[in-house]
Design a protein around this nucleic acid. Structure first.
Length: 601
DNA sequence: GAGCACTGC
């Protein structure tokens, strides 16, 4: 068993991990106590530090340096770099074995994002070549065992495959106690039919029966949340005086920044704040002062259908791990209570222990292209912590092939494939960027690509009427980001030798350049549909123009979309009108003209 | 007639 410093005992003198045997060390902490501002790291940074650390420009680094009493970026014995899993994967393109690092710690591994899972698979490969590399995977208790098994199996394989006498193949699992307070869990006695109404009732009940302390309610999305806020405010008016102390606030990512800031202002005396939130408050944001949590048991989750190649957001039951995480939000300042709007029987017997890893719920084009760029050719045989479906893999390979990013042997093409791999955008957008010069509009396309990589520069129409100034502010903030992205993309383009050129308002050229990337997203209007129904040319999927589009209700005969948002319907966002002949022009390998059969029309 | 949450340059 590896020697490892235990929090609370005397600090080790020089090395981060004094582990002569090498091996994988797992650290687990309970999900309910995981701190959102950096998980496991968040709890350790104050006590666990070295003589001197070099940290790099990011808020976490500055904070750690400050708490450790060292200067940011100061030269030292041990350098510590804070980065995201995505950035580390990009670093691997320059340095595939990550030779710069002797210890790599993956924090919040239980969240199982695509990039975390990719990184874990890649680190496993690296460790086969670099047995001295120490890995520290920090995850919630619930995931620790499967993570350990994942790395352990690799160990055994590599031992069989080589004559190296590798040390201790058994990863150590260490448990770190969180500092959260206890949270008392309450369940409903009978299943509820309407979780929205149940949530509203529960909030009112808490306010009536429980001592002061803010309430955090987890619902699924903007619609639910707006409805709940309205219902609650109506009830408050109806119930009268005692309830006027309730301050009801919605929270979701689409909310203008100034509204989000309200959430963080401390509750004034005699008031009780009720924050009604999506799962943004589950991991991404931490609210101080929350003592009561109301958990609907649902969240919106991405899911992917490789047949139609469509990602949608669907309301689905959360996992036990999420339920614990949500409950933990009540125990940050003092012992709290969590009210679950489902039965204990349901929690114990029906709720899944863990969520499905994002890898198994997503389109994989970006993932595949990154692995290809790292020289991993056998994508289907890659050793994942959770394997994606072969259908999803094959679909990604098909899309990349049709874009000319992969060749018949599924290798990256030169130069397009390698260039696309270098651009951190959706491969369709990258392809559009690289093709823009053929149409003499790289200037315009650069701007379009930059706008497409921010969520939206427009505030939601619902908010516009009352908060015009806010809308402007938000626009300004997003616009600055767009300019920033544009600058970065421009540098990349220059690196590829693509000149900046404007088509001086020739929008046909711009649309053709867009098609070079998005030809696979072509749709035609169903002639006799009264409601603007389109069908995708590829899979005859029913789709509609998003109401936020200027082409909404204009309904051109042929369109190409940039993305689909799938809620109750599949909505095309960022739509342009096209001529069908442009499709065959742009992608003759993908589209063929079929002369209409006169007998049928 | 309408948006879970992140991330990359």
């Amino acid at each position: 068993m590896s020697r490892f410093w235990k929090p609370g005992s005397e600090k080790p003198s020089t090395l981060l991990v004094d582990d002569e045997e090498g091996g994988v060390v797992f650290l687990s902490s309970s999900a309910s106590s995981a701190s959102s501002s950096g998980g496991w790291l968040g709890r350790w940074r104050a006590t666990y530090w070295l003589h001197s650390a070099q940290t790099f420009g990011c808020p976490v680094a500055s904070r750690v340096a400050e708490e450790a009493g060292v200067k940011l970026g100061e030269e030292g014995i041990t350098m510590i770099k804070f980065l995201t899993d995505g950035v580390l994967i990009r670093e691997m393109m320059e340095d595939p074995l990550l030779t710069k690092y002797s210890v790599i710690m993956v924090d919040e591994a239980h969240e199982r994002s695509i990039s975390t899972d990719m990184l874990l698979g890649l680190l496993k490969k690296i460790q086969r070549r670099r047995p001295e590399l120490r890995l520290i995977i920090s995850s919630a208790t619930i995931e620790a065992r499967s993570m350990s098994t994942f790395f352990n199996i690799r160990r055994r394989n590599s031992l069989l495959g080589s004559s190296d006498d590798m040390p201790d193949p058994e990863p150590a699992i260490l448990s770190v106690e969180g500092k959260g307070y206890t949270v008392e869990i309450h369940y409903v006695e009978e299943p509820v039919s309407d979780y929205l109404q149940a949530a509203v009732n529960t909030v009112l009940l808490i306010h009536e029966k429980e001592p002061p302390g803010d309430i955090l309610v987890f619902l699924t999305g903007q619609d639910d949340i707006d409805t709940a806020v309205k219902l609650l405010n109506e009830e408050i008016q109806h119930l009268g005086r005692h309830y006027f102390d309730l301050l009801i606030l919605p929270l979701y990512s689409g909310l203008p920044r100034t509204d989000q800031d309200l959430i963080f202002t401390p509750t004034s005396k005699g008031k009780r704040k009720v924050v009604i939130s999506t799962n943004i408050a589950e991991t991404s944001l931490t609210l101080e002062g929350v003592v009561y949590v109301v958990d609907s048991g649902f969240s919106k989750q991405k899911c992917y259908n490789p047949v139609s190649d469509i990602e949608s957001l669907v309301v689905a039951p959360i996992s036990k791990a999420s339920a614990r995480q949500r409950a933990g939000r009540a125990g940050r300042v003092r012992p709290g209570k969590c009210f679950r709007l489902y039965t204990e029987e349901y929690y114990l017997n029906e709720m899944q222990a863990e969520g499905i890893p994002e890898m198994q719920r997503s389109n994989l084009v970006s993932c595949v292209i990154q692995l290809k760029a790292l020289g991993i050719d056998n994508i289907l045989g890659f050793d994942w912590p959770a394997s994606p479906s072969p259908e999803a893999m094959i679909r990604a390979l098909e899309v990349l092939y049709s874009l000319g990013i992969l060749d018949e042997d599924a290798k990256l093409t030169v130069p397009i494939g390698f260039q696309v791999a270098e651009i951190p955008l959706d491969p369709m957008i990258s392809k559009m960027l690289l093709s823009a010069n053929d149409f003499g509009c790289s200037d315009e396309i650069l701007t379009i690509a930059s706008f497409l990589s921010v969520q939206s520069v427009w505030v939601s129409v619902r908010g516009v009427k009352k908060e015009f100034d806010e809308a402007k502010l938000r626009f300004a903030a997003a616009e600055k980001k767009v300019i920033d992205i544009r600058g970065q993309l421009l540098r990349l383009m220059k690196g590829f030798g693509i000149p900046l050129k404007s088509c001086e308002g020739d929008m046909k050229a711009v649309r053709k350049a867009i098609i070079a990337g998005s030809f696979a997203n072509a749709c035609h209007l169903e002639e006799y549909s009264q409601n603007g129904m389109y069908k995708t040319t590829r899979t005859s999927q029913e789709v509609y123009i998003h109401p936020s589009s200027v082409l909404f209700r204009v309904n051109p005969k042929w369109v190409v979309y940039q993305s689909l948002v799938s809620t109750d319907k599949h909505y095309m966002r960022n739509v342009i009108a096209i001529e069908p002949s442009w499709l065959t022009e742009a992608a003759p390998h993908f589209y063929q003209y079929r002369t209409p059969n006169p007998a049928l029309s």
